[in-house]
């Protein structure tokens, strides 16, 4: 068994595509019309074999309240591994990205949390052992 696709619910697929590609640096993996929406996935250039991240529409009525409650408490939907969390923090704030948590050392990991502008928070995590290896 392996993880091939995971998802985030995004308020606006076009805005999400722009954010995840132009700000975060992912590449489009699939973009197929499905009814009024799209099957829209992105992938990290550092992981050519996947997994894919599905930028899924937030239309279901349960999604809005769920997302709002998580965002209010600062809880991220997704965690991304980075080599240099402070460097990413500087780079992304320079691009206008808003963080709800600045880089903070939490034992073996330094984390930061950003807003994807589509109703989700995303954690960046730098594992210190991995960086030293």
């Amino acid at each position: 068994m392996k993880i091939v696709v995971t998802n985030v619910f995004v308020d606006d697929q076009a805005a999400a595509l722009e954010f995840y590609t132009e700000k975060l640096g992912f590449e489009v993996s699939a973009d197929v019309p499905v009814g009024e929406d799209r099957w829209l996935t992105v992938r990290s250039p550092e992981q050519p074999g996947g997994p894919d991240l599905l930028l899924e529409p937030s239309g279901h009525p349960a999604v809005g309240p769920y997302k709002r409650a998580l965002v209010a408490d600062g809880i991220p939907d997704l965690s991304l591994a980075v080599d240099d969390v402070r460097g990413e923090y500087e780079r992304l704030t320079g691009l206008g990205v808003k963080f709800t948590q600045e880089p903070t050392e939490m034992g073996p990991v330094t984390t930061a949390v950003l807003d994807d502008t589509c109703g989700n928070l995303i954690q960046l995590a730098q594992h210190h052992e991995a960086a030293a290896a």
Partner: peptide
Amino acid sequence: GQTLFELCGRLAMR
């Protein structure tokens, strides 16, 4: 200016 999430992380890790 911490969120609940950040506070929980700090309490657990520190």
